[in-house]
Design a protein around this nucleic acid. Sequence first.
RNA 1: CGGGGUGUAGCGUAGUUUGGUAGCGCGCAGCGUUCGGGACGCUGAGGUCGCAGGUUCAAAUCCUGUCACCCCGACCA
Length: 477
Amino acid sequence: MAKEKLVTAITSMEDDFAQWYTDVVKKAELIDYSSVRGCMILRPNGYAIWENIQKELDRRFKETGVENVYMPMFIPESLLQREKDHVEGFAPEVAWVTHGGNEKLQERLCVRPTSETLFCDLYSNIVQSYRDLPKLYNQWCSVVRWEKTTRPFLRSMEFLWQEGHTAHATAEEAEERTIQMLNVYADFCEQVLAIPMIKGRKSDKEKFAGAHATYTIEALMHDGKALQSGTSHNFGDGFARAFDIQYTDKDNKLQYVHQTSWGLSTRIIGAVIMVHGDNSGLVLPPRIAPTQVVIVPVMQQKEGVLEKANEVKEKLSSVASVMLDDSDKSPGWKFSEHEMRGIPVRVELGPRDIANNQAVLARRDTGEKVTVSLDNIAEEVTKLLDDIQNSLLEKARKHRDAHTYTATSMEEFEKTIKETPGFIKAMWCGDEACELEIKEKTGATSRCMPFEQEEISDKCVCCGKKAKTMVYWGKAY
RNA sequence: CGGGGUGUAGCGUAGUUUGGUAGCGCGCAGCGUUCGGGACGCUGAGGUCGCAGGUUCAAAUCCUGUCACCCCGACCA
């Protein structure tokens, strides 16, 4: 396509997907690298996407009764070590503060890699009675994990996220909340980010350090790799016992609370890029696009063009977030630039259009152009944005389904993962040894045990023993 | 942490083999002509050649060390 020849700034996906990703992230000006290894700078284009994600999710959280708080970023070493599995899971990637000014600290402080311990400490102080429950807290913050290798959005040493932490009177209530929040994530991803998710439970090997059960939403990227996009954990009363979080129930008996935590990070932006992006750059679903419509005037120095463009902007601003690009670049340059940034709809407006009381609408996802009357441009744009949102989800679903395979033998498994990367549905006996062997042989890990089970066979794909569960497998980011 | 690669103007790079005045394209600034898929002309600004040592009359170039980033792997909510 002629179009693609022009944008030489971006490596094509087919040539080198990793390089394509890096190019998009940079050229769309989502991030820049910083002077600290593994830490990225979120630039306005990138941060605005996160702000929209925050806005949408925060509203959905609050609809379920969640309240926001803010916890300190430092955790005393003794507190971190309270729960054994938890500290073992996180210790290798924790950053430590050892000095305050020139003085060595009595006790090291860790920079939070996650805040379970802080919330537990708080709950142990503020929960006394069953009347104090449930506690449904969330915080928006950054966390630090000393990663060995990093990639923008997908894995950085410091990243933005939200972490919800709840405490409940009963195990049932905690389990219900865990699933409820997983559903909030999945609905958000489908409806707003146009990314279809597989919902399911993690195997013991893959579950969160200290969790009783971990649930996950898994998405398939354009290159056939899986991305864990959000998790929801049920802690049972494990943390409560370690942190002594007890309440008095109606019968005046001491009980431990049951807890959950759930998180979603800027990593999800990586998913948006890798699910919807194409060789011209980023493709943003309208519902999170900071700018939904860009107006590109043609012959803008001509009498009346900019005036008309401003009129159209005014008209559209009631139905979408609109930007008028009246910079003195050529129209063609602007076309490519805004495509690179993923703006869903472009309005082209020149003297020819104005004479005919019309404008050209170009959609980012398909490149298709239509001419519409200026009289009902607001309605047309609204419809178009909706249509783009829907077809992005549809396209992503088709891609995922087309790259979801089944395997009933290891030969089939290995061949599929090698030749046609994607999700593989295969039966599993439940033994961790088989999980390890599959990883060893194929590089694929168990992504989740989906809620929607199918009986592909009655034997474990690895050992041939009686199968317990169908598992989605895949190579993961 | 292992393997590989790359560091020269904001970006992309030539020059390194064989040491000898740092060059080109894009971008940037000014002026003019342009404008329906990255327009063009003229003029101009911009460089501690990643950093630190060493060899030499002379180092982007050779030697030693070091740092950063990218890719693959290992590890990893």
